[in-house]
Nucleic acid binder design. Sequence first.
DNA 1: TAACAAATAATAGTATTACTATCATTTGTA
DNA 2: TACAAATGATAGTAATACTATTATTTGTTA
Lengths: 224, 224
Amino acid sequence: MKLEVQIKMNDTLYLRDPEQSELGKNIIKHSIQLIQKNGFESFTFKKLAEAIGTTEAGVYRYFENKHKLLVYIISWYWGWLEFQIEYQTKNIQDPIVKLKQVITLLSTTIEDDLMTSHVDESLLHQILIAEGSKSYLTKHVGEDNKLQYFKPYKDLCNTIGGIILECNANYKYPHSLASTIIEVAHLQNFFMHNLPALTDFDKTRQEDQIIDFLNHLVFSSIQK
Amino acid sequence: MKLEVQIKMNDTLYLRDPEQSELGKNIIKHSIQLIQKNGFESFTFKKLAEAIGTTEAGVYRYFENKHKLLVYIISWYWGWLEFQIEYQTKNIQDPIVKLKQVITLLSTTIEDDLMTSHVDESLLHQILIAEGSKSYLTKHVGEDNKLQYFKPYKDLCNTIGGIILECNANYKYPHSLASTIIEVAHLQNFFMHNLPALTDFDKTRQEDQIIDFLNHLVFSSIQK
DNA sequence: TAACAAATAATAGTATTACTATCATTTGTA
DNA sequence: TACAAATGATAGTAATACTATTATTTGTTA
């Protein structure tokens, strides 16, 4: 028996549910590969169709446009991360240990977990680092927000904000700190690899330093 | 007599120096207006040319493509901010007061300062918040970096990193903290206005809360 | 197993974008 | 006045981001 994790998705993101067919799963799988490899700007439905062996029109039957597809896979990732956090912290009592575990999960590229056959989580993590902010840095963020496209991200922020409050119930900015942790984990990773002068990290010790930087930042500010 | 501040620009960013002609200055001025108004994605050289009253080809004589134009105006902003920081902190002895002043400058939309007639700094600040990260979140960030496109940003990080070290010479991550302050100031501003559930701010008190959040974050971590 | 709908494939077509090229005209300066 | 540099006007191309139509395959159900 094979365990499969299903992440519940907002059904206004797609025209036809990609989880429900082979073609749909291929669209997700190859989108992740192509966006990670060539970046979101050069990603087109035509190239995607060629990679899968279908036609452009075939892809358009699943997603209205490439932006919604990006939001879809990013939402998927937030949902998956929420599940990971729940799973990996459920037996931890101490909220400080819990929050440290969350920081580690956010900063580390996790191996493809095989519970979601058509999604490679490590590629998705790379996409989040390089393209994540493009999902909301648009002029239509307001409408997208009304359609609940960012609910998984907000839920994650709430979860992390809750753990922050467990550590210190008087901390004033739990949501801002949560979104800061998430974004800074990704940004410092991008800078370390691409614009290292904006960091103090060397590539040899990799993500450990980002975790140390974030732990120091977060715990000095909530324990003060 | 009119005082004019000149920001020194990397001359591989343009084909013809936009500071040296009326058309060039118009390109900068209207780019800033159009990008701020409609976002970078929907910004085209054709629309820009129409706004100015010139032709597409006319714009292409100044900039190879819209990405380089974006990098140009963003570099200009970093250079201008560096100047502002220098100017507004030069008589401050206490590095803590200095760093607080920097955080305020980064978090606040400053009035158009009239010393740079063709650039509206408050619009530019808005562009930085919504489009700033798009200047480096590309697949060609490596080549762009080799061409020194991000030098003004790095210089700014070094300046701020230096002030951080003045506050605490033993702090391990001055550059990462500097880039974090810059990015978080912009991100939290964007979230406050567009995805408020990711913050703890209400729009009435505006930027004060971002400043308070950042001050708390930064000073607890460097004074610990 | 025929019959039917749903999904997919194949093909074509459109408006817009991101350019490049050419040539005529204006403008600033030696 | 004359000459080069900058600008304006126009045209053209390949790629992108779609939409539409029709044919074919596949899966289900009477």
